[in-house]
Design a binder for these strands. Structure first.
Length: 111
DNA sequence: TGGATGACGTTCT
DNA sequence: AAGAACGCCATCC
């Protein structure tokens, strides 16, 4: 169907699907693992396309934006961001008072 | 075809 | 240290 997402996006989904529970990663890292180090934004579109879909099995909530070296934070706007944080907390992910996650502890680098 | 867009990232001020 | 601006690159109109 033409309503389906672009073929290349499957590569991003494959990487996101490999993120273990209780771990998070960044858009840039996913793009890098997918073989496109300069396409961090595209990862966001791919995940945005999943929003509203049925149970796709993609843990989109484990994807955060780089909030500086070694840290990550939710880049989504209001409601979606709150929902994402809620899901992460449910997976024992800890946020500091600045709303960021320590990648050294919860970060996933493709392993 | 060209120009604007965006769930980002890095660098500069 | 915190905030703003620029750069990237496929997709949309």
């Amino acid at each position: 169907m033409s309503s389906s997402v672009p073929a290349g996006w499957s590569r991003y989904y494959d990487v996101v699907a490999r993120i273990p529970r209780g771990r998070v990663t960044t858009y840039g890292a996913i793009a890098r693992l997918a073989g496109a180090p300069r396409t961090a934004r595209h990862v966001g579109w791919a995940l945005a396309a999943l929003h509203g879909k049925k149970t796709h099995g993609i843990p989109w909530h484990r994807v955060l934006g780089s909030r500086g070296k070694g840290f990550a934070g939710i880049s989504l706007p209001d409601e979606s961001g709150t929902l994402q944080r809620r899901k992460l907390v449910a997976e024992k992910i800890r946020f500091d008072q600045r709303g960021r996650v320590l990648l050294e502890e919860f970060g996933w680098t493709g392993r």
